[in-house]
Write a protein that binds this DNA or RNA. Structure first.
Ligand SMILES: [Zn+2]
Ligand SMILES: [Zn+2]
Ligand SMILES: [Zn+2]
Ligand SMILES: [Zn+2]
Lengths: 151, 151
DNA sequence: TCTTTTAATTATAATAATTATAAAATAGTA
DNA sequence: TACTATTTTATAATTATTATAATTAAAAGA
């Protein structure tokens, strides 16, 4: 944890941004809930528990800044809110998501499954890929099992 | 065009929905601008040109309905608005997108590049894939060429 | 250390996108 | 035709996000 905070501090300083207490509190929440996919509001409420004086706009600005620095990825699962997802330590690409249309759960795939596809896009379409967003919608393992039992 | 309207009419009737004049006008706009990625507001303004009496909420409701019936796919490129994309005739999966981070252009890939990946997700993660969203962010061909010239 | 400059935050207001509500209109059906 | 359910309209409300001006905090210079 402290190690990753330090790392992020360096990334900020490299662009001459400061790691203010508010920013640090925000980053800590993201680290503590790394598996989750929090909205700005979610993050705000969690940060507020420890640092009640923080403002919502600051959380928005911090998340925006972290997005620009590629420390977090902004993603939208189609429910009208942007969610902020910490990039895995050392990962050079954004991970993929499995969204269950039954229970709403979100699972992550950290393996890069798109290497071949990106090569094709590069070669056949002449498009220089810098980043990607891949989300599968379907039925998660648990819901499949529940469906079997119900029959 | 008329052929596809008829087809959509049937799809609506199959679920006992009506193809009202407002809905038809909305579908026509989507058909006329099939290559584009229109927001609800965009669609509203275009429909209004021909049917000035239509309301914005009706457009929203129609697009929502068409989404449920999988006639259009709702997508978000991260700019805060939902965009509505007519599914290609006969396509059983949603096509992919190339979004240029320089000029903002959006190119479409109708080939299914995810067959292998979906098989892996199915087998290794036990997730039953029903739909997907795949967007690449990068530099389009035109912007690459402009960059070369500029040097 | 004191002062100046710049960056960041707060509190608040504004904007933009989307959804909800009630009344009126429309369409299908007995 | 009369009845019933669906859909639309006009409008208001809600929700997410961004902008503004005043204040605070941090860094840089004297
Ligand atoms: Zn994730
Ligand atoms: Zn599930
Ligand atoms: Zn471009
Ligand atoms: Zn498209």
């Amino acid at each position: 944890m402290e190690h990753r905070i330090e790392q992020i501090k360096k990334q900020l300083h490299a662009q001459s941004y400061k790691l203010t207490p508010q920013r640090e509190a925000t980053v800590r929440v993201l680290l503590e809930r790394e598996e989750d996919h929090l909205s700005a509001e979610d993050v705000y409420l969690l940060v507020k528990e420890k640092s009640p004086e923080i403002g919502l706009a600051t959380v928005y600005r911090t998340l925006e800044l972290l997005s620009e620095l590629k420390i977090v990825d902004k993603i939208n699962f189609g429910d009208g809110v942007s969610r902020y997802d910490l990039r895995k330590e050392g990962a050079k690409h954004f991970h993929h998501h499995l969204v269950c249309i039954e229970c709403g759960s979100v699972e992550e795939i950290v393996n890069d499954l798109l290497e071949d596809v990106e090569r094709i896009v590069q070669n056949d379409w002449g498009f220089e890929v810098k980043d990607h967003r891949l989300t599968f919608h379907g039925i998660c393992k648990q819901c499949q099992q529940s469906a079997v039992k119900a029959n």
